[in-house]
Design a protein around this nucleic acid. Structure first.
Lengths: 339, 339
DNA sequence: CGCTGTTGCGCAAGCGTTTGCGTTCAGTTT
DNA sequence: AAACTGAACGCAAACGCTTGCGCAACAGCG
């Protein structure tokens, strides 16, 4: 039925061990024999059984990638880039999409990737317990999206600096009433929203602007959430003349809410986002750009490096650059204020 | 080091075969013994090695999913939904991201998923040769995105009807000069762009409108391509008063081009897209909605069904519903025309 | 010309499961 | 009471690779 290594061995007139060594570039095979074997193998359409070879060798040549939502632009883009790096290095990727709390819980208790992967890339921030579970796999770990944990290589950005850029930009334009649409504060161990908020507070304080809690709203990192949050902010006694959204998706929701309220952007209200979503350019959204695909690729490379040098087990930590991208949703405040 | 089936067997005072049968719910084990074994197994944190069990049984309990670009909204969403169905059924998914022609070629010649998967879901349209390669795997096959091929279950939509809705809507509004931004016509075997274009031609002809080749441009299914295409159309001697873009992403590019040309939408030019991208709502884009996640889930279910009934090998064919979603980018043509 | 190194290859023992078949034994049937 | 059931379980042979070790053959050295 399906051609095995002994078929190749027989056809080439050698032993199975020699075929194995020849095909994987191991030493101990003369050049002529190796050439002959590869010829026979390709002619027979032979591919080594991954199950068998990983059972025998202990290496699986596959990487587990866990993601909260593959469908979301950010994660899809990171995954895309990481997958390219992995597959170029001969690794397959096993994808786990852990959107709902139940799947997530089930995943971490049953740990389906035990003995199935050589490394794990996590695009979600594991809590203390989850990261312990991952560490118990005994393989190199990496995660994007900040949230350093012991045993993990992490690649991320300086959230604080990014948010500072965004808010300072608004301050520099002359805004004094600056709102913020924050990410979900649901997960405590997830530092990004906290860091960005702190930057917001710091910049305001530096500029001598009193912090008004009525100018903060939670947008849950989604378009709809951003729309809701913006609507809330507009309902404040003295609505903001500018808002900083902690993600572009929320900023887009904000734009939508503003349009529904017949407010002009940036004439009435300025908006600045965070991420540089692929469609932010289309919308003309001013935002803090971070290298999303770059982070995925870098994290993948970090893992591969750890796989190559099993002794130098040191988990890396890479900080990627950010920059403020000026587009068309920010401008000085209108002299007559919003409305 | 890591706990194996014999460890469990020893701890439970039974043989490995009994452990295997007990844990997988096979008959031939008394209830008490089974309970005892499961208790011991969970207490020891035992998970069966996938490599070993698939080597022995031939079943891998993993599904291969091949995708052109995980990063793109459409594919990411389909994948997301499919993954949920698979993982709920106890299957893992092995992801192959085949963006570039080289990776794609390498994938199909080396076929890394030979003996690695129980089924394959393809989100790209394989050409004759590629689909033959997939068939040679001897496992159930399914694909979304139309393009029926022998041996494949396919779930898709009525592209023709969808495009007809879109174009007829523009005709009904009173437009006579209707442009089209089409998808890449690069791949011949890929029927979607052809079907949508045919619908466009038919509706025009039904309405007694002469077809003007200058009103067609290729947008390559990307935002940038859509922008370029719209720019081309606007450079025509008599530019269109409305355009039908074969995807929302291209429509968004078109919106961008229009804004750059200081043209108002829908006052000067109407735009209708196709897909109902998650951000189309934000942009107020009128479009033909198709159930994207639904298609992924349905395709996954089709595959699982084939895996369950290996005798009833019949490949299914599912057509999902579409509908025109009216938003804010379409209106009757302005009396004074564009410009 | 014996001796030690290399080099190239085959042998066989795993790797951790699954599964067909054989055995045991309690419970039925004559 | 002997013979006959099944049910419950163990034995051992796969599954298709990898890899440590052994063994030739042959080179280079004194």
């Amino acid at each position: 039925m399906t051609v095995s290594i002994t078929d190749v061995a027989r056809a080439a007139g050698v032993s199975a061990s020699t075929v194995s060594r020849a095909l994987r570039g191991r030493p101990g095979v003369s050049d002529e024999v190796r050439a002959q074997i590869t010829a026979v193998a390709t002619q027979l359409g032979y591919t080594a059984s991954r199950s068998a070879s990983s059972l025998a060798s202990g290496r699986t040549f596959t990487i587990g990638v866990v993601v909260p939502y593959v469908g979301r632009w950010f994660f899809g883009t990171v995954l895309d880039a990481a997958e390219h790096v992995f597959s170029a290095a001969g690794y397959d990727v096993l994808l786990y999409n852990l959107g709902s709390p139940e799947t997530r819980k089930r995943f971490f208790t049953r740990l389906p990737l035990r003995k199935r992967v050589d490394a794990v890339l996590s695009l979600l921030i594991p809590d203390e317990e989850e990261s312990a579970a991952l560490r118990s796999l005994g393989v190199p770990l990496a995660s994007t999206v900040g949230g350093a944990r012991p045993g993990f290589s992490v690649v991320g950005i300086d959230d604080r600096a990014g948010a500072e850029h965004a808010v300072r930009h608004l301050v520099n334009l002359g805004h004094r009433r600056i709102g913020m649409i924050s990410g979900s504060s649901g997960e405590q161990h997830w530092t990004t929203p906290v860091a960005r908020r702190q930057a917001y507070l710091d910049v305001l304080s530096d500029a001598g602007i009193a912090h008004d809690p009525a100018l903060e709203a939670d947008g849950d990192y989604t378009v709809e959430g951003g729309e809701r949050a913006m609507t809330e902010l507009l309902a404040a006694t003295r609505p903001p003349t500018a808002v900083f959204a902690q993600s572009d998706e929320m900023a887009m929701g904000a734009l939508r809410a503003l349009r529904r309220h017949r407010l002009r952007v940036p004439d009435d209200v300025s908006v600045v986002g965070f991420d540089d979503h692929e469609l932010s350019d289309v919308l003309g959204l001013t935002t803090v750009a971070q290298p999303v695909a770059g982070q995925g690729a870098e994290a993948a490379r970090l893992l591969l490096r750890q796989l190559d040098e099993p002794d130098g087990e040191r988990a890396g930590h890479v900080q990627m650059p950010i920059r403020l991208v000026l587009r068309e949703t920010t401008a000085p405040p209108s002299p007559r204020g919003p409305q």
